[in-house]
Simulated assay, not measured.
Amino acid sequence: MKVLITGADGYIGRALARRLAAPGTLLQGRPVERLVLSDLALGDPLLRDAPGVTAVPGSIADSRVIDLVTRDAPDVVFHLVSVPSGQTEADPDLGLQVNVQATLALARALRRSGQAATFVFTSSIAVYGTPLPERIDDDTPLAPALSYGAHKQMAEIFLADATRRGHLQARMLRLPGVVARPPTPTGALSAFSSELMRALVAHRPYVCPVSPQATLWLLSLQACIDNLLHAAQCPAQPFGGTTALNLPAQHVSVARLVDAFETVSPGASAGISYQPQAGLEAQFGRLPPLFTARADAAGFRHDGNLATLVQRVRAGLAE
């Protein structure tokens, strides 16, 4: 089994790569014999020297990099790399180049390899835009309000057509907020939820840019990796005739989230204050109830309850 991960040095990419590089790991019932990791740089010392791991540094928008990572015809591709929302708004050309053009180029290169690789693509809830309807389900129309969401929708359309033609087997997962991300300037406008959680765990002050009534869709990193691996092994039929799914997530208010951390660690919320930004809250803090019937039927799962999510976030930050 040959596996490729793009964006392998990111928050999700590192965790996925570590899981797949562990001795004895099976994917689609076969041992992972070669793991190719692609990103601008690869700084995880636990991965650089792991058996069977090949690092390919450079931009996935570079045709040379695409040639290198597809040379041995990977069986499974996890395409995680992207230019996030804030950075894409500031530099739309870079966003288009990486989020759309590189995705298309990677898919075409895989087609030339002659193997219909399983292609797990991380899309985003940003495809729904604003204002959001009163609920989101599998049939909610897409209406992205930012370039990042538009780019994800463009990639979804292309990958769905490539799947129809038999060039690859796309599994596209629209990720909710995956927490708690590290404190790096990723340009993700939704990163405030992770910043809030880090402050709660550390008992330090934090000015939250959304109100206590703001509502979020949350998934722990552990549950996210479980779902990505499940997508790579899930047959097409349970997807209900589509290649894109909304991942299950817990729908919680900021107030309830803060209370959950306070329950585990009294005093955690003492330094939390609020200065809501109307535009940010409208885009990322007014998420309606989420219904994921197709994903549920296909075996995708969130963390189960808020207490488990908080426990996993705290454990991840401790590491």
Rank of each mutant, 00 (worst) to 15 (best):
G95L: 01
L96R: 13
Q97T: 13
V98K: 02
V98H: 01
N99W: 00
V100Y: 07
A102M: 02
T103S: 15
L104D: 09
A105S: 13
L106Q: 06
A107C: 09
A107G: 14
A109V: 06
A109P: 01
A109G: 07
L110T: 05
R111G: 11
S113T: 15
G114N: 07
G114M: 05
Q115I: 09
A116F: 00
A116M: 02
A117K: 02
T118L: 01
T118W: 00
V120F: 06
V120K: 02
V120D: 02
V120T: 05
T122A: 13
S123D: 04
S124A: 10
S124E: 04
A126E: 05
V127E: 01
Y128P: 01
Y128F: 15
T130V: 12
T130S: 11
T130L: 05
P131K: 11
E134T: 14
E134R: 14
R135N: 00
R135M: 05
R135V: 09
R135C: 04
I136S: 01
I136L: 15
D138P: 02
D138M: 05
T140G: 03
P141W: 08
L142F: 14
A143I: 05
A143G: 10
P144V: 07
P144H: 06
A145P: 03
L146T: 14
Y148I: 01
A150K: 11
A150R: 13
A150L: 13
H151D: 13
H151S: 14
A155N: 08
I157F: 12
I157K: 11
F158R: 14
F158M: 14
D161P: 09
D161T: 15
D161H: 15
D161Y: 13
D161A: 15
A162F: 08
T163W: 01
T163L: 00
R164F: 06
R165G: 12
R165M: 15
G166D: 08
H167F: 14
H167G: 07
L168P: 06
L168S: 08
A170T: 09
A170L: 06
R171N: 09
L173Y: 04
